[in-house]
Structures are given as C-alpha cells and as structure tokens.
Design a protein around this nucleic acid. Structure first.
Lengths: 106, 106
DNA sequence: ATATCATTTGGCTATATTGCCAAATGCGCA
DNA sequence: TGCGCATTTGGCAATATAGCCAAATGATAT
C-alpha cells in the first residue's frame, strides 16, 4: 500500500468512523425523513447540547450531513442519503452473528 | 431512546466501527474476490503479524468475516458480502465533500 | 515426542474519542 | 443597543483503540 492509497483508505475510514457511533447513527436515521433541528436531537436523546453538537460536527466534517441555519435554529439534513442503505446490511451482519452464536449454544 | 433501542444502536455501531479503520477496510476489500490467508495480509500491509491478527479479530467478532483453518494456515472470507456495497456510497460522500471544499476556495 | 511454522494472546505505551461543564458566539427581538 | 435563546467551542478526565514486542498456542512434519 503506497502513500497515496494509504491516504485514500484513511479518508474512507473517516466516513465510516463518523457513522460508527450509536448517537450519530440514531441521528442519521432520524434524518431519513428530512431536515431536523438540533434541539430535537437534544430533546430526544438524553445528552448535553454540547455533546450533540460535537456529534453533528463529526458528521458534518465527514461530509454526511449539512447544516442550514434559519433564524435562531440550526437544521441538519443528509447531504448524501445513500448512507441510509447501509442499515439493512448492518442488520444482516447482526443477524448472521446472532445465528452463529445461537448455533454455538446447541 | 429506551434501553433496548440503545443496545440495538450500540450493536449497529459496533459493526460499522469494525469497518472504520484503514487497515480493516483494506482487508475487507481484498476479500471481495474470495478467501485469503492471513500471511498475505501481513506481506502486503507493512504491519506486524499480531497487529493484523487483532484487526481480523475485530472483523470476526463483528460478524463480518469468518476464519477457515486449513493445515498450518488460517484463511479468512467475507461472511456477509453486502458490506462491499458500502464502498461506492463512501466514495460518493468523499466526492461530495471534495466538491464542497473546492467550492469554498472559489 | 519434538521442532517448526502460522497465528493468536497478553501486556504495555501512545494516541484518539467521548461526554460533561463553563464560556464564547451569533442571530433576532425589545 | 443590549438581552436572551440556540448552538458551538475550549478544556478536561475517563475510557477505548492501535500497534509493537514477547510469550503462548495449535497443527504438521521429522
């Protein structure tokens, strides 16, 4: 793996890393039906404003979401909605894993 | 988010986290064309055997790959190949990000 | 049985991530 | 202009992750 390829894999990993957190995953799924205000995330998740804000920054810096400021509020929306398609495969992995564990108990 | 849902998001995040590392991503893509021996990864990546082995353990525990021991060697293969479909979307995110940055420079 | 090879595991240090608090910012309204 | 609200930023302590070395394991071949 040369330097160029290495940087490319690091960039790819950064995108997946942005998704790889329960709170951020929840936010991304929430955005499936369109734009939402930061305040909604804070209300529904039991976290500090600052914590949510930092999670949103991670998603924004990865290029997954974008923010739209309107009035006092900030709304976030998915910039690249194809990430939603990951979910069914992630669930397939979890199911396969559950089956394997069940098989070991037999 | 109740306790049950929380655990579910943690499990999903675990799968994505397993993919969210340059070396592991490289390994997963390498497995696109089928089974490969651990020794091949060690040869092609400039890492210690133990480092590669731990990365493989992360992928295995997440349910993404499975190991097949034959003779002295251990071969790994994708257990749930749909993860390969993530790549094009990850690249779409990167491209969208590149465009945004380019736009800012104008 | 023993030596050998491929891989895994344990242990360690360095680095990265998370989540809270407090303080700073930015916008709209009185 | 100056206040108040929504959000972001800075800073810190706790925890998690990465990668190296050395030692342990497990199968094969002698």
């Amino acid at each position: 793996m040369d330097e160029r390829e290495k940087r490319r894999y690091e960039a790819k990993a950064k995108v997946l890393k942005a998704l790889a957190h329960p709170t951020r995953l929840w936010i991304v799924e929430k955005l499936a039906d369109g734009e939402h205000c930061v305040c909604e995330f804070v209300n529904e998740l039991e976290h500090d404003f600052s914590t949510i804000s930092k999670h949103l920054a991670v998603l924004r810096e990865a290029g997954i979401v974008q923010d739209n400021k309107r009035g006092k509020q900030v709304f976030y929306e998915l910039k690249v909605p194809c990430v939603l398609r990951f979910m069914s495969c992630v669930e397939a992995v979890m199911e396969s894993q559950a089956m394997t564990h069940a098989a070991l108990l037999e």
